[in-house]
């Protein structure tokens, strides 16, 4: 029981729920219907090419287990780098066929979620975000 309480305290106090840190890039990554200052709302275009689609997510978790008799803890660290890499890959796919300044990295939404698990000799706490969108071309 002490372990469970310790796990809950660590999870609550560690500030570990932050999942969507700002993307470390100066390339605009737009979300929503307006894609430039002063612009008008425009619906997102269908991303037909799978290579231009973003399906990146970032799941992070903290687990404390004691079933084996030896208490252990593990944590996955948050990272937005795979998403930034995906934007770069999509741009590389389009490079040569059109000027990249005409390409917009665009999402229609960001999904988030979290859960708390207790059982089977483990306490777990996970949280995640997922990007839905792709590289939009003219």
């Amino acid at each position: 029981m002490k372990l469970v309480l310790a796990g809950a305290a660590v999870a609550a106090l560690a500030g570990c729920a932050e999942v969507g840190t700002p993307l470390a890039t100066n390339v605009p990554v737009m979300v929503g219907p307006v894609t430039r200052i002063g612009g008008r709302p425009a619906p997102q275009k269908e991303i037909a090419n799978e290579k231009l689609r973003y399906d990146s997510d970032d799941e992070n978790s903290l687990w404390i287990c004691w079933a084996s008799g030896y208490p252990s803890a593990s944590r996955t660290a948050p990272s937005v780098l795979p998403f930034v890499g995906q934007i770069g890959s999509a741009n590389a796919e389009l490079a040569g066929s059109m000027p990249l300044r005409n390409v917009t990295a665009r999402l229609d939404r960001v999904s988030v979620g979290s859960y708390v698990w207790f059982g089977g000799g483990c306490y777990g706490h996970a949280w995640w975000w997922t990007a839905h969108g792709g590289a939009e071309t003219p």
Binding site: G20, P22, L23, N26, V29, G32, D108
Partner: peptide, 16 residues
């Protein structure tokens, strides 16, 4: 899912 279908302003996830 967090969405903003009727936002009048541009929103960016990055510094750009």
């Amino acid at each position: 899912g967090i969405e903003m279908p009727t936002s009048k302003y541009p929103v960016s996830l990055s510094n750009g």
